[in-house]
């Protein structure tokens, strides 16, 4: 059984590793020292700095930062945008992964490239393209003005820019997973008489649920924190189009450091929760993977 074999990843210790397969002690300690110093300076210190700066004037001042209409509005707007993006991108991710992994068709690799694109495009450009499309000077600008519709400097623009940045996350997570699972279970369900929908809900969805959740976690983390793209399309209108990251920027530029870092600490805590949930899902996925791998070994 796979679980009982000591692997490097689980429970294997340095002591169990024979000397010829590891480095001299001083090398090990130096490498660990370098790695820890690097992580301390570039990861941990910035994180600590956020909370330190937020609490610089005491806990009362920290809490007072949230008794601000603009801050509350920014929080609500950020959550609204995140939820919309999450729902749309999850639906898109499942559809895209389904069509890419379950069928063979012409143009598949082109679709895959399009899905990868946002990872390589600057967030600022992601904002710019929607300004060129829907802004006052944009392609549809006049038409929108005539019909009294606002996309840029309004919620739809923020949602579109955030969608562009975050849509690959769910699809990218599901595609390799569904590829590995193949189509046998779906075929089995179809032979047993299940309809297409029943097959999806009762066979496919339960077996991809952790991957889907994982992609959604990554998607929501990025959606909540997106700055560059949103900055271009939002217009920074306080109480209207300011998301939390933009609100942090405004406070910072107005030298309201405690309030700025207080809002930043809120997003940092959300980031830490994200990492925690991400770990949990990784652990669940690895367990399921090992169960399946282990059982195949026993055949």
């Amino acid at each position: 059984m796979a679980g009982s074999v000591p692997t490097i990843r689980h429970g294997g210790t340095d002591e169990r590793c024979p000397a010829h397969l590891t480095e001299p002690t001083w090398v090990r300690w130096s490498l660990m020292g370098i790695a820890f110093s690097f992580l301390l300076i570039f990861l941990l210190l910035p994180l600590i700095a956020v909370f330190f700066e937020a609490l610089r004037k005491g806990f009362g001042a920290y809490l007072a930062s949230f008794h601000d209409r603009a801050a509350l509005h920014a929080i609500v707007l950020t959550l609204t945008v995140t939820v919309i993006c999450l729902v749309l991108n999850a639906a898109f991710g499942v559809c895209a992964a389904w069509v890419i992994t379950k069928f063979r068709f012409f143009g598949k690799s082109f679709l895959l490239t399009l899905i990868d694109l946002p990872f390589a495009v600057s967030p600022v450009i992601a904002g710019l393209i929607f300004v060129l499309l829907f802004g006052a000077q944009g392609l549809f600008g006049e038409w929108l003005l005539d019909h009294d519709l606002r996309i840029i400097f309004a919620l739809p623009g923020i949602v579109l820019a955030t969608l562009f940045i975050t849509f690959p996350f769910v699809a990218r997570e599901l595609i390799p997973m569904m590829q590995a699972q193949g189509t046998e279970e779906e075929e089995a369900a179809r032979v047993l008489g299940a309809s297409g929908w029943v097959t999806f809900w009762r066979v496919t969805l339960p077996s991809i649920k952790w991957g889907l959740l994982y992609g959604m976690i990554l998607c929501s983390a990025r959606a909540m924190g997106e700055f560059g793209a949103v900055s271009v399309v939002s217009g920074h209108i306080r109480n209207q189009t300011n998301t939390l990251p933009l609100h942090i920027e405004i406070l910072y530029n107005e030298y309201q450091f405690v309030a700025s870092f207080a809002c930043a600490s809120l997003l940092s805590m959300l980031a830490l929760v994200t990492l925690l949930i991400k770990r949990f899902i990784e652990w669940r996925m690895r367990n399921e993977h090992q169960q399946n791998a282990g059982s195949v070994e026993r055949t």
């Binding site: 992580l39 990554l218 924190g225 994200t274 990492l275």
Partner: peptide, 24 residues
């Protein structure tokens, strides 16, 4: 914990990272 922390830059909003690094 260290392993999980490596993902922090993925999860932390860039603006937060920006002001934190500036403060440091």
């Amino acid at each position: 914990i260290v392993d999980a922390l490596v993902d922090l830059p993925f999860a932390l909003p860039t603006a937060v990272a920006g002001i934190a690094l500036t403060a440091l």
